[in-house]
Design a protein around this nucleic acid. Structure first.
Length: 922
RNA sequence: GCCCGGAUGGCGGAAUUGGUAGACGCGCAGGACUUAAAAUCCUGUUGUCAGCAAUGACAGUACCGGUUCGAUGCCGGUUUCGGGCACCA
């Protein structure tokens, strides 16, 4: 019987579907295991071979866990809202729901061909109203809660109101936006509208003005990656920073818990570092600088209170409200011009550009609280409005950015640390002995820092504060294809829809563009208002809204009463293994942790952290092929000869190139202009050049998994993707290497079918010691590698085993059957077929992973490398258990030892039993 | 600019914790089988030098330096490629 991947894979995919092999129940005696993939955005281009990499990895893990007796939840769905579908709708008029549906169907059929063990009955998509009902529900919950910093959890707004009635806001320690202090009496005397605006400042979902990339010509807000060099990518129109009223989520309230939670989860250190950096905790103090001849006080945050004596000027962010408040009439025009100029640059440009120093004097002076000196207040775009308070105290002697600014504008630089030479550059190190610092002189920096904050607090001009870089998440998008907010406006105040009115579904509109006057697309919808005429919110939610709690929904996808039932949540608890790309290291993974913690506070979920173990898969890069056209001709020269001509390098479709040899007929047929192309060949072949680039349509290097499955089979594709290299690393795709794993599967198959006419020929004889060694060493390696997700070496180990068993002509059931089970997670179709051929009538998924017998995995001899001065000269087989002295004696007795030493003196002997031997000789 | 990750033969990569660098696979070269091809199998394959050969010497894990009996792995510095930087998802 020949190995026919097409028949076998079609048969078993149908079998799995007919028998519900991968359907998972929420009720089971077996322990649970939850393996999750980051769900894809279903783009119009379909899957390329890079997408399934992580899915295959998690699929192998899921299948392995099932073989080990776990009840495994392994679902798939679609992150279905997003910009590309909307852009396509703008261009073609097609409703995004229609194209999204088509794309999803394509994705599903592509995924099904690869033989994943997904429970497809749990498939979900974020654009389904039954799904986004719960996204809207969560938003309403956030609106109805505030964060109690003492209790370290979210609490209902009703509790807050009760507190206000008792004590005003003087005692409460809660996360909030700027709001003045008031006692209970003032609260109790407030109008409803005043109360509303106070409460709104405490809600976890709230409204505030934030900066957006506004493109007046397109009448729309642009994403950062739609802006290039200050103009829109589409059309090249100018883009400015403009404040806009938006919904925000108070993620910053959870900063400390998001940080602490990292200690409890099994993620890589680099990923945790990125999250820590994103959260950006810094301890320091918040303090006020008075402005001369004004009531304005500048609030600043500093981690270096010890350097206040060296503050020689202040700098405001161009967007800061302070700019308007302090600028003197004489300077107004210049400042306005500067602010307008800064508005043209994105935040990223401003952060990246540390070379050009720009700024403008406001005409106003602040008073240094320690020295009493008057210091000028400047505006500069190196201060960002979004971080801290949008104003800084500048210490040019000890901060490099302040230093560059002071040099440029001739501002004084006062060194505060003994021995610090600040004639060429600032002294940024946080160590040394203080000078020029009044009462802090002679102290070391650390002590001075503490004492300075004490002094600030004593003077009543500020207090200790922990600051976070983590900003509240802007939750509004001026787009159509997203979740509508369950919000309407009554008398100018935002109100939530009652829960029984959810979901609020997306309305139909006649065009997906913003309106003439720059309103979001939803404002085009007729009747976009409540029954009593209050208009609904017209912006929609961002991409991360739908992806923040989807892992919970998979647990209980059809529940209309709750996001997830108590029973389902308590059974599945959390994601045991989460596999996805490193591009989500901060965005998605911060927001969903926040979302989960919030739901945890409210008692809807039982785990504080959603993703126990997380692994990032690397990217698969494209391997592009090039042809070389001689300039001004239609003649192409082979890569080896191109240096003899003046050529243009052109991309050629990798699908008409094999092993870098161009299929000339296919090339001529590829495009009309190449019909009559001429070729200069080497050895009768046209050799293409190659390069590693991103896999993308425009590089003609996209490889579609459907073609690979058709030609080689899903099992080969799965093995090959894993064999490419370490899961976490990015690596190029080169289809020609696939032959190796393809041959491996055929060879494995032949171990069973080596009888007459290829009939099944498996013997029931007892295996030899050596065969058992091969088997158990392989099982051990494969199992270890699966647990660490080192699948590339697991595949190698199985190749070695098959090579060994082929040489030994081993066809024994007691060896082949366990090996088949070990291969099953990697290559599910072929192993199902072999399992059946071996006489089993149930799926191999319900087999048990074979038990490793340790005694067959350890060798009784060790091949010792014998090195002299660290260089291995020869090797020696010795009994594995031999001790140091025994090893040394055996080595010294060896003739090659005498030959190598050859009269030289032995200075030192290093023997590590089980490892190596090294002699230092002179 | 800031944060994170990577760099090993012609190519993808391997190398428990600092202990034989190049497993496994591709490609290539030679051979067997075949009328021939495909498929399959066998042998060789880091470089340089020496040798008819078995083999031996030297160099070698991006670059420069350090620690160590011993470094692909640790430390300091550099180059370069990739990811992220808050409205792509």
């Amino acid at each position: 019987m020949e190995y026919n991947h097409r028949e076998i894979e079609a048969f078993w995919q149908k079998y799995w579907e007919d028998h519900g092999t991968y359907k998972v129940s929420n009720v089971s005696d077996r322990p649970k295991y939850y393996v999750l993939d980051m769900f894809p955005y279903p783009s119009g281009a379909g899957l390329h071979v890079g997408h399934p990499l992580g899915y295959i990895a998690s699929d192998i893990f899921s299948r392995y866990k099932r073989l080990k007796g776990f009840n495994v939840l392994h679902p798939m769905g679609y992150d279905a809202f997003g910009l590309p579908a909307e852009q396509y709708a703008i261009q073609t008029g097609q409703h995004p729901a229609v194209t999204t549906e088509q794309n999803i169907n394509r994705y599903r059929s592509q995924l099904k061909k690869i033989g994943f063990c997904y429970d497809w009955s749990r498939e979900l998509r974020t654009c389904d109203p039954k799904y986004y009902k719960w996204t809207q529900w969560a938003f309403i919950q956030m609106y109805n809660h505030y964060y109690d910093l003492d209790a370290k959890k979210a609490r209902p707004i009703a509790d807050l109101i009760a507190e206000f009635e008792q004590n005003g806001n003087t005692k409460i320690n809660a996360a909030h936006s700027d709001v003045p202090e008031f006692p209970a009496a003032v609260w109790n005397g407030m109008e409803d509208s005043e109360r509303n605006s106070v409460i709104d400042a405490y809600r976890l979902a709230y409204r505030a003005k934030t900066m957006v990339n506004w493109c007046p010509k397109l009448g729309t807000v642009l994403a950062n990656d739609e802006v290039k060099d200050g103009v829109s990518e589409r059309g090249g129109y100018p883009v400015v920073q403009k404040p806009m009223e938006q919904w925000l989520l108070r993620v910053s309230a959870y900063a400390e818990r998001l940080l602490e939670g990292l200690e409890t989860i099994d993620w890589t250190d680099s990923l945790k570092d990125m999250q820590r950096n994103w959260i950006g905790r810094s301890e320091g103090c918040e303090m006020y600088f008075e402005v001369a001849d004004s009531d304005v006080k500048l609030k600043i945050f500093t981690t270096r209170a010890d350097t206040v004596h060296g503050v020689t000027f202040m700098v405001l962010a161009p967007e800061s409200d302070y700019v308007r408040q302090v600028t003197t009439p004489e300077c107004r025009d210049a400042v306005d011009a500067y602010v307008a100029g800064a508005a043209k640059r994105t935040e990223l440009e401003r952060m990246s550009d540390t070379h050009s120093v720009t700024g403008q004097f406001t005409g106003a002076y602040a008073i240094n609280p320690f020295t009493g000196d008057q210091i000028p207040i400047w505006v500069s775009d190196y201060v960002l409005a979004g971080y801290g308070t949008g104003a800084i105290m500048a210490v040019p002697a000890h901060d490099s950015r302040d230093y560059a600014f002071a040099k440029k504008f001739n501002l004084p630089i006062i060194p505060l640390i003994e021995g610090a030479d600040v004639s060429q550059q600032s002294y940024d190190a946080k160590e040394g002995i203080m000078m020029n610092s009044g009462i802090f002189n002679g102290l070391d920096v650390l002590t001075a820092k503490k004492k300075a904050i004490d002094e600030v607090e004593r003077m009543g001009i500020g207090n200790r504060k922990v600051n976070y870089r983590l900003r509240d998440a802007i939750f509004s998008r001026q787009r159509y294809w997203g979740e509508p907010f369950p919000v309407y406006y009554k008398d100018g105040h935002a109100e939530m829809l009652p829960l029984d009115k959810l979901p609020l579904t997306l309305p139909e509109i006649d065009s997906y563009l913003p309106t003439e006057d720059g309103e979001p697309p939803l404002s085009r919808a007729a009747g976009w208002q409540t029954a009593d005429g209050c208009r609904y919110e017209t912006s929609t939610m961002p991409g991360f809204a739908g992806s923040s709690a989807y892992y919970l929904r998979y647990m209980d996808p059809d529940n209309d009463e709750a996001l997830v039932s108590k029973q389902a949540d308590e059974y599945w608890q959390d994601v045991d293994l989460y596999v996805g790309g490193t591009e989500h290291a901060v965005g998605h993974l911060i927001y969903s942790r926040f979302w989960n913690k919030f739901l945890y506070d409210l008692g809807y979920v039982c785990k504080d952290e959603p993703f126990r173990r997380l692994v990032n898969q690397g990217m698969i890069q494209g391997r592009s092929n090039f042809v070389y056209r001689i300039k001004d001709t239609n003649t192409f020269v082979s890569a080896g000869l191109k240096s003899q001509y003046d050529t243009t390098e052109l991309h050629v479709d990798v699908n008409i190139v094999k092993n870098d040899i161009l299929d000339i007929d296919a090339f001529r047929a590829w495009r009309p202009e190449y019909n009559n192309a001429e070729f200069i060949l080497e050895d009768g072949k046209y050799v293409c050049g190659y390069g590693i680039e991103k896999m993308s349509k425009s590089m003609y290097n996209v490889v579609n998994p459907d073609n690979v499955v058709e030609d080689y089979g899903a099992d080969t594709l799965r093995l090959f993707e894993m064999f490419l290299g370490p899961l976490q690393q990015s690596k190029p795709w080169d289809t020609s290497n696939i032959e190796g794993v393809s041959r491996f599967l055929k060879k494995f198959w032949r171990l069973f079918f080596n009888g007459k006419d290829g009939a099944l020929n498996v013997s029931d004889d007892e295996p030899t010691e050596s065969e058992l060694r091969t088997l158990h060493k392989t099982l051990k390696k494969v199992e270890d590698d699966i647990l660490t997700l080192n699948y590339n070496t697991a595949v190698s180990a199985m190749m070695i085993a098959v090579n060994d068993l082929t040489s030994a002509k081993c066809n024994k059931r007691k060896v082949l059957e366990p090996l088949t089970i070990a291969l099953a997670p990697f290559a599910p179709h072929i192993t199902e077929e072999l399992w059946k051929q071996l006489g089993h009538d149930t799926t191999i998924c319900d087999a048990q992973f074979p038990q490793v017998i340790e005694k067959y995995t350890v060798d009784d001899t060790k091949c010792y490398p014998v090195a002299f001065n660290g260089k291995t000269k020869f090797t020696l087989d010795l009994p594995a258990g031999l001790d140091k002295d025994g090893i040394e004696k055996a080595v010294r007795d060896n003739e090659r030892f005498q030959k190598t030493v050859d009269g030289k003196t032995i200075v030192k002997v290093i023997i590590v039993p089980g490892k190596m031997v090294n002699f230092v000789i002179k």
